[in-house]
């Protein structure tokens, strides 16, 4: 228990430190980066809840982020703006307008309900079949978002969301997500799910109902993704379905894989590292283009370097930077060893 509290204290402290440093610096660009980082934390922690504990790679996560973002948008865009922002909106939704904070929670709940309804049959699958079906689910969700113009405005940009997300809110939700991910990991469901991740046959032989365990984790992961999506929507205030597809999927997967999918610590550390690297590379790309060092503009350097970093981590340290133990457990073990040696 002490180790878990230590993990929360260290990782939560890191998030609080981010907020404090940002407020001390007072630079608007850093505020945007830090807020995006905290929203990414919510998304990556959600992915860790399912992927880290079940061992099954899921591509569908960004789709549920989209469900949350659009749910919150429909519930919060002012009624007088809906005529322009969502011209095809169902009449019964036109007058609906709730608090963005309520809508963020609703975004998470709707994403979780959609996940619950769609995913149970998929939870019986393992290995490649499970990965491919999760990818198919992402394609289905993306296609629905692109074509359901009554709710999403189709492939066009949806605008008019009230700005409600700031750094303290995003950081607060990220800390809640951190605690929830750790509590889930140590719960009965989390432990049995981790057992099935390590050896499905042995876990079933002990009596674990693996599809049910995976399903619960998938729903919780979708809840995180929906909340993350709604938070992001109220930060950026306008978006289109392409914000919830392959490029973004790759980004959050790289955060989790580089940090270490099996641990909550890995999810947090990976998100920090990749966000900092991503923003630095984007800045570097901009400097290169402004200086006109190359004859053609440099495009895609960020993505290529990230992809290479992911390949390097998978080759050299397949479990990521924190493959098995949470940071609190690592500190606890060091202390115990020192006490024993003394």
């Amino acid at each position: 228990m002490k180790r878990h509290l230590l993990t929360v204290a260290i990782l939560g402290g890191l998030i609080v430190l981010l907020v404090l440093v940002n407020q001390w610096l007072g630079i608007r660009l850093y505020d945007r980066i830090a807020t995006n980082l905290c929203i990414s934390l919510v998304l990556v922690l959600g992915l860790q809840v399912f992927m880290g504990n079940s061992g099954i790679l899921s591509f569908a996560h960004m789709g549920f982020m989209g469900v949350g973002a659009y749910t919150s948008a429909v519930l919060t865009i002012p009624a007088q703006m809906k005529g322009m922002a969502l011209p095809d909106l169902y009449p019964f939704l036109q007058a609906v307008q709730v608090s963005p904070y309520l809508a963020i929670a609703a975004g998470g709940i709707v994403a979780a309900l959609v996940a619950a309804a769609l995913s149970y049959p998929l939870m019986r699958l393992s290995d490649a079949a499970a990965v491919i079906t999760s990818f198919a689910l992402l394609v289905v969700l993306y296609t629905v978002m692109t074509h359901w113009s009554q709710v999403t405005n189709g492939p066009r940009t949806l605008f008019g969301l009230p700005k409600a997300t700031d750094l303290p809110l995003a950081a607060g939700v990220a800390i809640l997500a951190l605690i929830a991910a750790l509590v889930f990991k140590e719960s009965r469901t989390g432990r049995l799910l981790r057992a099935s991740r390590d050896d499905e046959t042995a876990a079933a032989a002990l009596g674990a109902h693996i599809p049910s365990l995976r399903w619960r984790a998938f729903i919780l992961a979708a809840l995180f993704a929906g909340v993350g999506g709604a938070l992001w929507g109220h930060f950026i205030t306008s978006f289109s379905p392409k914000a919830f597809y392959l490029k973004e999927t790759f980004l959050i997967l790289s955060m989790l894989v580089i940090g270490g999918a099996n641990t909550v610590t890995g999810a947090i550390v990976g998100t920090f590292i990749v966000t900092i690297a991503y923003e630095s590379l984007r800045g570097f790309e901009g400097v290169l283009n402004e200086a006109k060092i190359m004859s053609n503009p440099v495009i895609g350097l960020t993505e290529i370097v990230l992809a290479l970093a992911m390949i390097a981590v998978l080759a050299l340290r397949p479990g990521g930077l924190f493959p098995t133990r949470e940071i609190g457990a690592l500190f606890g073990r060091k202390k115990t060893r020192q006490e024993n040696a003394g």
């Binding site: 432990r191 049995l192 981790r194 991740r197 390590d198 050896d199 046959t201 042995a202 493959p323």
Partner: peptide, 23 residues
């Protein structure tokens, strides 16, 4: 099992607990 099938990324105590938790 003939070839040991433990949950290798979990601790020893978590391995033993998992069986009771499943019940």
């Amino acid at each position: 099992f003939q070839i040991v099938r433990l949950f290798n990324n979990m601790t020893v105590v978590e391995n033993v607990e998992s069986s009771a938790l499943a019940h």
